[in-house]
Each structure stands twice: as C-alpha cells, then as structure tokens.
C-alpha cells in the first residue's frame, strides 16, 4: 500500500469512526427540548434545558449524581410519568412532533424511543422470546417474520453469533455483558428511531464494556443515541456531542472533542478534570 493510499485509508477510517460531527444539513435535529423544566413534587430537578440532538449521532450526558441527567433522559420518552407527583413545563420535539401533545400515544412514543437501563433486565423467558416480545405484543404472530426480526436484532446487537445455537435457552443463563446486549436487541425489535441508554456498561467488565461501546458506534448509523454515563472516558470515546449537567441546569453542550480539550465553562472544566463532583 502506498503512503498516499495509506493516509487516505486512515482519513476515511476516521470519518467512518464518526469523529466528525454530523452535518446538520444532512442530519436534521431528531430531538429538541425548549425551556424544559421538571419537578418531582415540589423539588425542581431540571431548569430551562434547551438542547438539540442531531439525527444519527451519539450524545453523552455527563454530570455528578443528582444533576438531572437521568431525569432528562427519562423525559425523552415520558418515562418520568410513571413516577407519581412529577410534572414538567416546556416542550420536547421528536422529529418535529411534540411528545407531550394530546394526540401523542405514549405506547407508540416508547416504541419510537427505546430504552436500555443500567442493570440488564431480561425477562425470565428464552433468548428468542425476549427479542420477540415487543413485536408479539404489537400483534405480530407470523413465526417466519418473528424469526427474521430476532436474527436481525441479535445481529445488530452483536450477540447473534454467541447465541444462535441456543435461542430457546433461558436468557438468565447469559453473562452480564450478553444480557445487556440482549436488552439492546430487545429494544431494537420495536424498530425505534432513538435509543436512550442509562449507564449501559457501568456494571460490565472492560471486555463487555468495549463490546457495548463498539455496538454504540455501529448503531449510530441507523439510530439517534442518547447515553448517560459516569465514565468520562466512555463519553469521550463514544459520543459526538457531550452535554454537561450540573444542579439541574445544562451548563454546556458541544462537540465532544472540544468539550474534553477546551471546555468553555469553568464548571465543566472543574468537573471533567475531577476538581469537584
């Protein structure tokens, strides 16, 4: 390989790796919040959060415990509504549609905005049934189609090769990292547009963590991903945009490479360098 070709390859790999920000002209904003405020009873958890998340990008939410990042994440598919005494003000748009609009069906919203949690939570069913669960409750009975969905989602979640010979074994027999990838496959089965991840790798060993991070990179070709993480290096590695929350406020949001080399706000600098929090 000539030097020139080698260089071109490196540059194209870098672009492949998605280290450049999605062009907003090509990738329109998938999620937009306007003046979002949120309360748990009388305690305000979010203050005037305005953020725009481009389609097919990875946005990392960072900040100390209790800063509002998980609350913000759960606002994006109205999961907070399951908690009594909560209320919000402001708007959240998914592809231009207000998700709190009266005509918005919450079930279909959560199909469009899937979620993966910190602790993997497979159903006590077979691997196959875990992935087929979403399509099944959506009324799909055709076994051939379900089989195709299960294979496609397990492949996308980088789990297929490891489980294809034991699809009907219990999901609870999988390792922690495999269970988490199964949960991702399960979330993909409803054909979401957005994937919310709340510390998806915090309970995993380094090898499983790397698999999840590689997976996030693969998935962003087709999905918009928002990830909450306490692991700053993980945020730096996997995301295009990073948003720093502190005491319920969005302090700074920007391209990840910029935020980790020259943040604009002192609070961000202090947090990412470990000078507080």
């Amino acid at each position: 390989m000539s030097v020139v070709v080698g260089y071109a390859k490196i540059m194209s790999d870098r672009q492949e790796a998605g280290r450049t920000l999605p062009n907003v002209n090509v990738h329109p904003m998938k999620l937009v919040t306007r003046n979002l405020n949120f309360w748990y009873s009388n305690s305000q958890a979010l203050f005037n959060v305005n953020v725009s998340i481009p389609e097919r990008s990875v946005t990392a939410l960072i900040g100390p415990s209790g800063c509002g990042k998980s609350t913000f994440l759960r606002c994006l598919n109205r999961m907070n509504e399951l908690i009594e005494g909560t209320r919000h003000e402001g708007e959240i748009y998914l592809g231009g549609q207000e998700i709190y609009a009266r005509n918005m069906d919450v079930v279909s919203l959560r199909k469009r905005v899937g979620m993966v949690f910190q602790k993997s939570n497979p159903f006590p069913k077979s691997i196959f049934e875990n992935v087929a669960y979403g399509p099944r409750i959506a009324g799909i009975r055709h076994m051939g189609y379900l089989t195709e969905v299960v294979e496609r989602c397990l492949t996308r979640a980088a789990l297929w090769d490891e489980v294809k010979d034991r699809l009907h074994d219990s999901a609870l027999g999988l390792s922690g990292g495999q269970q988490q990838r199964l949960c991702i496959a399960r979330a993909l089965a409803t054909e979401p547009e957005v994937l919310l991840m709340d510390e998806p790798a915090s309970a995993l060993d380094p090898a499983s963590t790397q698999r999840i991070e590689d997976l996030i990179y693969d998935l962003k070709r087709n999905y918009t991903i928002v990830i909450v993480t306490h692991n700053m290096q993980q945020a730096a590695r996997v995301s295009d945009l990073t948003a720093f929350f502190y005491q319920g406020r969005l302090v700074e949001v920007g391209p990840t490479d910029q935020l980790f080399t020259r943040p604009e706000k002192k609070e961000t600098e202090d947090y990412i360098t470990g000078r507080f929090g």
Binding site: A236, I272, T273
Partner: peptide
C-alpha cells in the same frame, strides 16, 4: 491518568 481539558493541555 488520561487527562482532559487543562490537564491534557
């Protein structure tokens, strides 16, 4: 240490 921001600079 994988330093960031001012420490990296």
């Amino acid at each position: 240490h994988a330093p960031v921001a001012v420490d990296l600079r």
